[in-house]
């Protein structure tokens, strides 16, 4: 098949040169099955040897080569150029995942990303149970196997690992982290990748690490910071769907009651309470429930809203007519 042509504008920068960034433009031809990485390699080996980017496995399993094309995070090695051209047209702009952390061309400093991964305690702490006790983890040997004893081959029902739901196949490429709009605004937010990692261990029947749920429920860093834009799920190159995992953790944190999680958590639980009681949303009590004494700071705005008829304070606001049905539905959806 005849090759097609594409124009790439590639972000160039060198932290050691201290100059501002620029874009280099390359007009190239590509073949039917060329991936973005193939085209970059062509530039690197034949046109401009100084172009720098991370890459390794070439088939989307090592997670090295995440970068942005026209603003969309992709894995360069498993994104056909033809698909990009179909989506964005024949002019493509290639950027590093996060321009504010770039050190060289398409290479970003990923320390923050890895630091959050490490903070999520990304390792299994094996449960120690009696070999005779019932339950799915029954046959897990409690002894470290370093002592040379013949090990017990563990029995785990295949169903019990289904709950992990492919979360252990995250390749830590950072695409979701770069796409998440909360991360730049709330530097403490763990982000979708680290939270997906936590999910993976929370759902593992063999894990005994205490306090994982409390950690993801924490205000400022945990699940409450998510604004549910679904960007992470949209860009994940491995279709892991971080959002649905995060949202399941939301529910679990609420159900466990272990963590109030600040305003955002109370807002969510207040919302729920409101609906359960009346089948309607009554915003004033909800705001009081969520913000507590901080309502003071909203006083001026509240008065102005009231004067303009935007705030209805009616504690006796009637119930929704079908509130029993709503309550039933809510119970069932849990």
């Amino acid at each position: 098949m005849a090759p097609d042509s594409v124009r790439l504008n590639i972000f160039r920068y060198d932290a050691f040169r201290g100059e501002s960034h620029s874009y280099d433009c390359y007009d190239l031809t590509y073949h039917q099955n060329d991936q973005l990485l193939d085209v970059l390699e062509m530039i690197k080996t034949e046109i401009d040897h100084s172009l720098s980017y991370r890459r390794s496995c070439r088939h989307g399993i090592c997670g090295s080569c995440a970068m942005k094309v026209n603003g969309k995070p992709v894995l360069a090695c498993s994104t056909p150029v033809r698909d990009l051209v179909r989506e964005f047209g024949p002019k493509l702009t290639v950027d590093p995942l996060d321009q504010s952390r770039v050190v060289r061309d398409l290479i970003c400093d990923m320390d923050m990303f890895w630091e959050k991964y490490t903070r999520s305690a990304p390792f299994l702490e094996p449960v120690t149970v009696q070999a005779s006790s019932p339950g799915p983890a029954a046959a897990v040997s409690a002894e470290p196997l370093d002592d040379g004893k013949t090990p017990l081959i563990p029995l785990i029902f295949s169903g019990s690992t289904n709950a992990i739901d492919d979360a252990d196949h995250c390749i830590m490429c950072g695409a979701c982290y770069a796409a998440c709009p909360v991360v730049p605004l709330q530097p403490d937010f763990l982000g979708p990748a680290a939270i997906t990692r936590s999910y993976r261990f929370i759902k593992d029947v063999r894990d005994a690490h205490p306090g994982r749920l409390a950690a993801v429920g924490e205000a400022g860093s945990g699940v409450w910071e998510c604004i549910k834009c679904l960007k992470c799920t949209e860009v994940c190159p491995k279709q892991i769907d971080p959002f649905s995992k995060l949202s399941r953790l939301h529910q679990e944190v609420l159900r466990s009651g272990s963590s109030p999680g600040g305003i955002r958590a109370r807002h969510t639980s207040g919302f729920q309470l409101n609906l359960l009681l009346n089948g309607l949303l009554n915003e004033f009590p909800l705001a009081v429930f969520a913000m507590r004494f901080r309502m003071i700071t909203m006083l001026r705005r509240g008065i102005r809203m009231f004067l303009h008829g935007k705030l209805v304070i009616n504690p006796l606001r009637p119930r929704s007519r079908g509130y029993r049905q709503i309550r039933r539905l809510m119970r069932r959806s849990r």
Binding site: F123, L124, P126, S141, L145, L152, P154, I156, S158, F201
Partner: peptide
């Protein structure tokens, strides 16, 4: 080898399983 599989499994590797729960 068997010891290695048990060790990996105990430390979190999610091996595919048969319906009886064996690896």
């Amino acid at each position: 080898a068997p010891e290695i599989i048990a060790d990996l499994d105990m430390h979190g590797a999610v091996f595919s399983r048969t319906s009886e729960g064996k690896i």
